[in-house]
Amino acid sequence: MTRISLKESLFLGFCAVFILLSRAALRLHLGISGHVMFSTMFFLLIARGCVPRFFAATITGLFAGTAAMALGMGKGGPLLLIKFVLPAMVVDIGAMALPFMFQSYLLCALVAATAASTKFIDTYVMDRLVSMNPDIILQHAFLEAAPAVLFGVAGGLFVPPVIRRLKSYGVI
């Protein structure tokens, strides 16, 4: 496979920017836990669907995490990077394992749900590090991850029609 082009890299960068912008906008206006996963999943999947490179979504996640750190968005400081990169890696693995993923609502929803559920791992690891009670860690991680998965699936479901339109326009 040829090296990722500058245009593709910039597009992935813009997808990362959209993730951050929508996080900022949603945080201001809604304030519902996990809702940011809607736009995060949507743009991570769009990034991978538009740029068919193995690490496309991971690069987007890396950009988004780094920029979030630089812009001071969300809590977590340097750990923010993991929050963005983990779901992005799941999207890349999903796209590699399921080649027709972007034509199927079901597969997109499945991959989005799996990727969004990494929120469970983030929370679990953080809570373990601060020595929280093991029973409560599970409950806390579940409370954090459940809405994220629901919103992530909603975001994922919009991806196939958008990709289909972009293809019909000749944009990708």
Partner: peptide, 23 residues
């Protein structure tokens, strides 16, 4: 769906063009 198709879709197309122009 209006948010996705009327706003996100044109914005994605615009960002692709923008990436091309910057390149």
């Amino acid at each position: 769906p209006d948010l996705v198709f009327c706003l996100a879709l044109p914005v994605i197309i615009r960002s692709m063009n923008l990436a091309g122009e910057i390149t």
